[in-house]
Design a protein around this nucleic acid. Structure first.
Length: 863
RNA sequence: GGACACUUAGUUCAGCGGGAGAACGCUUCCUUCACACGGAAGAGGUCACAGGUUCGAUCCCUGUAGUGUCCACCA
């Protein structure tokens, strides 16, 4: 017997461990069709947040649903080493421990980093278990493990040999805190307040000067020329002359190039090729020098004279002071401009000329774009995110993949100590003592881009690779379409010739109650574990996956989790009731072979429609829509109507009626449990195991099917009428200020055939005394209620005033409806152009409302 | 400067070419035999604004305003 209240803690106890130990999560049943998902590997840097909980629950729902449908489901777990993020955290920890990180060796550091990884991996495992995720742990991978490292090297070497990876000196974004290069998308452009400074650049051998503007005066030490537009008449006379750099007194040539826009700013632009991407292009074009003026920590280097060693921003202030003293300062204006910040530590990044490894993106991007017109097309859900992907692919620049870090995949390039010759190969050169390996590691996203196939053993033709790759679906947030989804697509196409997955299911972000992003600095984050402690994991899962439409953000609202828990309690109690009703050792029977009452037929039809609707929406990954169909069935059809009304049949002596009711109750309850199960596996398992005649676990059940035999709406007319009559009578009592259980005498005129049960139910649920049922009304004195298929005369001797008011109100409503119908039907265009079906509908409505009006008027007369 | 989303009940959100929905909150009534984490009844919305297409628009199209997100090297 179930407890009176659903208590999540008791229900959850031990279930996950049991499922895991029984091997339900392990893929490999060759008799079935495969279905595979790889988890977006979480970073080993911290706790999982609500976003992870959402993302993984969606996957869990898909995995459990597909397994019930008879697929051999592989959901492959794993984690990401998360290069910069992890290295920064480990370094910080070492500093806390009092270790001098400037003296630590690469090998020592990696030892600490691996220990860190072990610790955090355990946290993540615990959280996955709490969430109830059906992950196949026998196939778990880590982006830095040996097999994946092999795949990474293989891809790197292949791309290198194809000429798609090259080493080059280019302007990259430099993170001076981590002291590493970053890729473009690791830089976040933020609108910051700043100043535009205007300085005089005196013209050599002249009293004239040019005015040049800049937001970063400290880069003036790297200036190599001043550019003007050749057509700019203001400056024609200076072509071929030189100006003095007010920062260091050096003479700079004036170069005329139409890159400079006339009329923009002062029309004269300073050019710093080593520290600005545009200036770099000019520098290359004119073969200018490209002096680098920063140290790796973004302090000024020896090229900056008296400013050497200063922080860049301190230098800026001092330099401005000195230029003012020299009389070359013109003005400064406050401006808002986009400044690049490191995604990881928010420091201001510095564009810097640097030798790095790059992936040549154009050919890879073109292949990925072209693939969208083939049968291997990646199907984005919702579809609009395909545009996001294509747009990025169409505008992509080469990808800087080398990072000056230790924690990551070491680049398989070796430099000859004497000749400098580069060898890129899987294994170190034989005479390794003459070589030095590139100290850099690869961007984290380089290895995560291989995740869908590297996890399955590629480049070996493993059984898993053959069976589960390409994967069936991928679930992730829209915020990492660029970082990850796109890269998986072009990397996988390039390495395997196949697209990595069929469907990409994109969800939004979890926000706080006020719609703000959850962040550490705001302190508005919600820990999933706290929510689970309060409401249970099933309520959290249900809340997360049913409260937003696909691709849209969601707010975390505590009350909504609570209401999810209430829903589960409702299901719990309906199950408690049904299980209490069913005879001991009940053997389920096929309802279609029993003598079903109209009520049984009605609810089974509703159930079939519900299964259909839920399944259709599950297929579309629309969990909000799917769940609301089930929700409505549970509350309205099953609990409010069928459960209550079935009590009549159960109290009768008719054994056939009872059997039909048992079978119907059993089927409804079981299917509700199975339909809710992918969302809320713990409570579903608990209830399932309490069902008579159950299998060893809900995890080996199959998904409910629609039985055509049970799908018919014959009984709908009668049952809907019954509900309407009951509702009318209840309303009647309220508007006549009668007690709900007050007995009333009724005379009923029915215009459709109904079963004998009709009056039985009616009596019981309205406490009525039914005097007459037939095709006309006997003459009781009282009030007439007219419905679609029947009229009811209620004897009543209470206050007439209120009744008259009510009838008048009803008449008004009917008149309005008639007016609406007539307006439509009198419109010749409507008759000519609207579909016939619609016209018939309106005609029927008009007739009905007219009849109602006549009846109401009669009623009014009688009073 | 581009792109995408959003604007519907007090709040959070669904929905849809043909009489506006849910949850929470609110009002009234009910401890009745699954559930008071419940039941019954109810109040509450010119579906942002303006045009257009259509027999018919909250829904489709265009524009406007507001909100949010992403992308973008402009000195």
């Amino acid at each position: 017997m179930l407890d009176k209240r659903y208590s999540p803690k008791i229900v959850e106890e031990g279930k996950y461990e049991n499922w895991k130990s029984k091997g339900y999560f392990t893929a490999g049943d060759k008799s079935k069709d495969p279905f595979s998902i790889v988890i977006p590997p979480p970073n080993v840097t911290g706790k999982l947040h609500l976003g992870h909980a959402w993302d993984t629950t969606i996957q869990d729902i898909i995995a459990r649903y597909k397994k019930m449908q008879g697929y051999d489901v592989l959901w492959l777990p794993g984690m990401d080493h998360a290069g910069i993020a992890t290295q920064a955290k480990v370094m910080a920890k070492l500093v806390d421990m009092g270790i001098d990180v400037t003296k630590i060796s690469r090998e020592e550091f990696l030892k600490y980093a691996w220990a860190w990884k072990e610790e955090y991996a355990e946290n993540i495992h615990n959280q996955w278990a709490k969430m109830g995720l059906a992950l196949d742990y026998t196939r778990e991978r880590f982006t830095l493990d040996e097999g994946l490292n092999y795949a990474v090297r293989k891809v790197f070497i292949d791309l290198y040999n194809k000429g798609l990876i090259y080493q080059g000196e280019r302007i990259i974004s430099w993170d001076p805190v981590q002291q590493t290069a970053l890729s473009n998308i690791e830089v976040i452009h933020q609108d910051d307040e700043g100043y535009m400074y205007y300085f005089k650049y005196p013209v050599v051998d002249s009293d004239d000067y040019l005015i040049v503007a800049t937001t970063r005066p400290e880069t003036m030490f790297g200036d190599v020329c001043v550019c003007v537009n050749p057509k700019d008449e203001k400056y024609t006379k200076y072509h071929g002359m030189k100006v003095i750099n007010p920062a260091n007194g050096e003479a700079l040539p004036i170069i005329a190039d139409d890159y400079v826009e006339i009329g923009f700013g002062t029309g004269a632009m300073k050019c710093t090729p080593a520290h600005d991407p545009n200036d770099f292009i000019i520098g290359k074009k004119y073969h200018l020098e490209m002096p680098i003026i920063f140290n790796k920590d973004a302090t000024m280097n020896e090229k900056c004279g008296q400013y050497a060693g200063l922080d860049r921003f301190v230098c800026r202030e001092k330099l401005i002071e000195n230029i003012k003293k020299d009389g070359n300062f013109v003005k400064q204006e406050k401006i808002i401009h986009a400044v690049g910040h490191s995604q990881r530590n928010n420091c201001i990044v510095e564009p810097m000329l640097s030798k790095q490894w790059f992936v040549k993106m154009k050919p890879l991007a073109e292949a990925a774009i072209a693939n969208q017109d083939t049968e291997m097309k990646v199907n984005f859900v919702p579809a609009r995110f395909e545009h996001t992907f294509l747009q990025w692919m169409n505008n992509i620049e080469d990808w800087c993949i080398s990072r000056q870090l230790w924690w990551g995949h070491r680049i398989p390039a070796y430099y000859h100590k004497q000749t400098g010759e580069i060898v890129v190969s899987m294994d170190p050169p034989k005479d390794i003592e003459n070589y030095e390996q590139d100290p850099d590691v690869l961007d984290t996203w380089f290895s995560s881009g291989l995740w869908p196939f590297s996890t399955m053993g590629w480049p070996e033709e493993t059984d898993d690779l053959k069976r589960y790759f390409p994967t069936s679906a991928l679930v992730t947030g829209y915020d990492i379409i660029f970082f990850w989804v796109s890269r998986m697509i072009f990397q996988t196409l390039n390495a395997t010739g196949k697209a990595p997955f069929k469907d990409v299911v994109i969800h939004g972000l979890v926000r706080d109650e006020l719609g703000r992003k959850m962040s550490k600095s705001l302190g508005n984050g919600v820990d999933p574990i706290d929510v689970i402690d309060k409401y249970g994991v099933d309520a959290l899962r249900y809340f997360l996956t049913t409260n937003s439409t696909p691709g849209q953000d969601m707010r975390y609202i505590d009350e909504k989790v609570e209401s999810s828990a209430n829903y589960l309690n409702k299901i719990w109690n309906s199950a408690r009731y049904v299980l209490g009703i069913l005879p001991e050792n009940y053997q389920p029977k096929d309802p279609s072979e029993l003598q079903l009452s109209p009520l049984d037929k009605w609810v089974l039809n509703r159930l079939m429609i519900t299964i259909q609707n839920v399944t259709n929406n599950m297929e579309k990954y629309d969990f909000n829509a799917a769940s609301s169909h089930l929700y409505n069935f549970v509350y309205d059809d099953f609990c409010s109507q069928y459960l209550e009304m079935s009590k009549v049949a159960l109290s009768s002596d008719d054994q056939n009626k009872k059997e039909a009711t048992y079978a119907t109750l059993y089927m409804c309850l079981k299917d509700i449990i199975l339909l809710i199960y992918p969302y809320t596996p713990f409570i579903a398992e608990e209830l399932y195991l309490n069902l008579p005649n159950h299998l060893e676990s809900v995890m080996v059940e199959s998904y409910p099917k629609v039985y055509d035999k049970l799908l018919n709406d014959e009984s709908d007319k009668e049952i809907n009428l019954l509900f309407n009559v009951i509702k009318e009578i209840r309303n009647y009592k309220i508007s006549n200020k009668l007690a709900p259980n007050k007995s009333l005498d009724l005379s009923i005129n029915l215009r459709i055939k109904v079963s004998d049960d009709f009056t039985v139910y009616l009596k019981r649920f309205t406490f009525s005394n039914i005097k007459y049922v037939g095709e006309e009304i006997i003459n009781l004195s009282g009030d007439l209620i007219s419905l679609d298929y029947c009229d009811i005369l209620i004897s009543n001797d209470s206050d007439k005033e209120e009744i008259i008011e009510r009838i008048k109100k009803d008449i008004e409503t009917e008149q309005k409806e008639i007016e609406r119908c007539e307006k439509m039907l009198n419109n010749p265009n409507f008759i000519a152009k609207a579909p016939q079906e619609k016209i018939e509908q309106e005609k029927a409505k008009l007739e009905l409302h007219k009849t109602n009006l006549i009846n109401l008027n009669e009623k009014l007369k009688k009073i």
